[in-house]
Structures are given as structure tokens and as C-alpha cells.
Amino acid sequence: MNRIASVALPLAIFLGLAASTVIVAGRVLPSRQAAALAQEPVDLPDVRLTDHHRREAALVSELAGDDLLVVTFNYTSCQSICGVGNAIMQELDKAVLPRIRRPVRLVSITINPMVDTPDILAEAAREWAPSERWLWATGRPGDIDKVLRQANARTADIELHELVFIVGDGKRKDFRRMPVNDATVSGVLAALDGYGS
């Protein structure tokens, strides 16, 4: 199946969601409003991940560090919601994040670490042309399970996994799960804006 066919339905869903919201740009919300935009606190574990460049780093202390962080979940053979998540991350990476004052790290974590090696992730990532700020990551299965549990990301049926975005501030160690309806480019941007500079 070619790339166009594999993302047509998810992309149509993404465009429908995006059309129902307005991108929030050029304004900074107080941090309590950021919490309101992404309400469910997440205690992200500081597990070691390996990205699609074969570089290892700890999720919280190194990848987030003192920067803003956006995490979502995918897997390379996905034919369902992953295309929507990837399209949102691509839009953030290409068009939105360059306008944010603080550095932002984007991390797409595989939910299928037994299959998605760094080389396989690198091949999948090429289709989305990520910048250096957007990493596709894998890790030990137990560590990935820990991240998924902490993020309340249900993956019992891998093909029916949810579209989950975690947004946070590494400096404050404040990470929150976006409500499903706000898992859009504008929703993620509004939550990032809420953390200020």
C-alpha cells in the first residue's frame, strides 16, 4: 500500500479536527491555563530511549531537559490513527514550533518496540521529513510499557490504540495528557503557549 492510501483516512480525520479549531498564535497564557488546556497530570518516567538516529537519551532528564516537550505514540506498520498523530507532529515541526519562543522537543514513541528498531523507525520517519527537533523513539519493551501506563495510553489492541498527546515543561517537570478533543495542532499549540517563556 502506498503512503497516500495508508494515510488518506487518518488525514481526512485530522483535517476535520483541524478545521474545527483555530490556531492560537502569538499569545502566552498563564501556567494555570496551560493546566486547564491539558488537564490530566502525567508522571513521565525517565526511561532511556533510542531514537531513529541510534542516539540514546533519557526521556525526562535529557530529551525534555529544561525545554517544552510533546510526546505521542505510533508504530511503523499502523494503518489507523498513527497517520493523524504523525500529521499533527509534522505540522507542529514545520510550521508552528519555529514561532514558539522556547525550544520544543517532539518525541513519537513506538508502541511496538519488538518490531520497531531504530533502523525501521528511521525508514518510516523519512516519509514525514522530521527536523532535528522531532525524534522517533523506541526502547526496551518494559520501559515502553511503563511510559504507556503513566500516560494512560491504552494499547491492549494495538490497531485500536488512542490518539494520545502529552505536553509539558521539562524545567517544571509538569507533564499533562491532552484531552482527546484537544489533540489537534491548535490544541497542542495552545497548551505549549500556556507554559510561557
Rank of each mutant, 00 (worst) to 15 (best):
A12D: 08
V84R: 02
G170Q: 01
I111A: 15
H161W: 08
R3S: 12
A19Q: 03
L44D: 04
K173Y: 09
A191F: 08
N152D: 07
T76N: 07
A38V: 06
Q90A: 13
G85T: 02
Y195G: 06
L49I: 06
L189I: 12
G194I: 01
R27N: 07
L121N: 07
S61A: 08
H52W: 07
V60F: 05
A87R: 12
G26Q: 03
R48G: 09
P30A: 00
V47D: 01
A34S: 04
A153S: 10
N86F: 08
R48S: 09
A191C: 07
L121I: 11
Q39F: 09
E91M: 14
R101L: 05
A129E: 13
W128G: 00
N74L: 10
G170P: 09
R149S: 08
I81A: 15
R176P: 05
Q39R: 13
L59G: 04
R177E: 06
V180W: 12
A87V: 14
A153C: 12
T50H: 10
R172E: 13
I13K: 11
V107M: 01
A124H: 12
G139F: 02
K146Y: 11
A95F: 08
T117S: 14
H52A: 06
E127F: 15
S80L: 12
C82F: 13
L37R: 15
N181M: 12
A137D: 00
L37I: 05
A124F: 13
D193I: 10
R126P: 04
W136A: 03
E91F: 12
G194L: 09
L97V: 14
A64M: 01
R133S: 08
P141I: 00
A5H: 09
V96K: 06
I23F: 11
V7K: 13
M1Y: 14
I23Q: 08
H161N: 13
D193V: 04
R176T: 05
H53M: 09
S6W: 02
